[in-house]
Design a protein around this nucleic acid. Structure first.
Lengths: 168, 168
DNA sequence: GTTGACACGTTACGATATAACATACTAACA
DNA sequence: TGTTAGTATGTTATATCGTAACGTGTCAAC
C-alpha cells in the first residue's frame, strides 16, 4: 500500500527539479518543431514557469511571473499561452483546482489521471491507461465518442497519510 | 444550447422526466431521513430544480430559480444548497462545466462518470465502477488514498455523431 | 509591396465562488 | 421555562477565474 518514495510519480518523490525541467523543455522544443507549431517566447516561458514551480498553478499566478519577465500583464496573455500548451499536450488543466500543470511526459500518448493531496496540495500525474480503457468501454456502451477526458482524484498523498494531524 | 432547456436530455435517451424526478425526490427524502440530515426547503427545492431541468445547471442559474420561489437572492444561498446535495450524494458537480446535475440514482454506491456532448451540451451520467476500480489500483500503486474523484469526458453523443455538421 | 495568417498586447467585462457577519430556528437540557 | 449550542438561512462585499473584442506588429507567400 505505502509506496516507495523513490518509485512513485514524480510529484510525490524527491528529485532534481531543474534537471527534469530542462529535459522536458528540450522535448517540448523538439515536439513543437515536429508538429510544425511555434513554441514562442511567452509560451516557452509559461511552460518553464510551470515546470520549475513543479506544481499546479493558477493562470493569474503564471501571468504574474510572465509579467515580471516583461510579457503582457493582462489575463489573456496567460490564458492563451496556457491553452496552447494544453492543446499541444505540453500541459494539463486541472479543473478541480482551476489550475494548470506541466505535462511530465509530453509526446508520449497518454491519458493521465491526477491525484491531488488536500493536505499538502501536491498534485501527481500518473499514467492511467487502464482508466482510459474503462472509460472507452463505458462510452461505447452508450454510443458516445470520447475526444478528451479529465480524471482527477482528491485524497491524501503517501507522505500526508502518515501524518494524520496535518490533514485538513 | 439545447432548444428547450427544460426538456433537454441529461441521459442520451428519452423518458418521462417528471416521473423520474418525483421518484428521485422521494428517494432523496428517505435517504436524508436515514442519514439523519435535513433536506430543508431550499435544499429540496434546489434538487427539484436540477431534477426537473434534467441537465447540468450553473449555480447562478439555480439561484435565479430559487429566488423566484422566494428564497435568498445571493450566491451563497445556491452554493450552500448545492454543496449540501453534492456532499450527500444527491447531486454531482461537473467541474468542466462549472455546473451541477442531480444524481439519478442517489443512495446506490456509485462512482459516476460524465459524458459531455460538445455539440448539444447534453450531459450523461453513466455508471463507471470499472473506471473507479482502475483508479483505485492506480492510486494504490502510488500509495495515494482516494477520497473523491471526478471523471469527465468531452466528445459527441450518439445523436450528434450522426449530424457531423451540427458539431461545433 | 500587398495580403493574409497568426501572435501578442490592450481595455473592458462577464462568470464563478467565497469570506465574514447578522439573524433565526431548533433541540437539549438545567 | 429560560438558556445555550448547533445549524441553517440570509445579507453585504469582495475575491477569483475567464473571455470578448479590438489594435498593432511580424512574417511568409504571392
Amino acid at each position: 500500500m505505502t509506496a516507495d518514495p523513490d518509485t512513485g510519480p514524480l510529484a510525490f518523490r524527491s528529485h532534481d527539479h531543474s534537471h527534469c525541467a530542462d529535459g522536458v523543455l528540450a522535448e517540448a522544443d523538439a515536439l513543437s518543431e515536429r508538429q510544425g507549431v511555434k513554441l514562442t517566447p511567452v509560451r516557452r516561458r509559461a511552460l518553464e514557469i510551470l515546470l520549475r514551480s513543479h506544481r499546479a498553478m493558477g493562470a493569474y499566478e503564471v501571468l504574474e511571473r510572465l509579467a515580471e519577465d516583461g510579457f503582457g500583464k493582462q489575463p489573456p496573455v496567460a490564458y492563451r499561452a496556457l491553452d496552447f500548451l494544453v492543446d499541444h499536450g505540453l500541459a494539463h488543466r486541472i479543473r478541480r483546482l482551476n489550475a494548470f500543470a506541466a505535462c511530465m511526459c509530453p509526446g508520449t500518448a497518454h491519458r493521465p489521471a491526477f491525484f491531488i493531496c488536500h493536505a499538502c496540495n501536491a498534485v501527481a500525474e500518473a499514467p492511467a491507461d487502464a482508466v482510459g480503457r474503462a472509460m472507452d468501454s463505458a462510452a461505447e456502451a452508450i454510443g458516445f465518442s470520447v475526444e478528451r477526458m479529465n480524471v482527477e482524484a482528491v485524497g491524501l498523498c503517501p507522505a500526508c497519510r502518515e501524518v494524520p494531524h496535518a490533514a485538513d
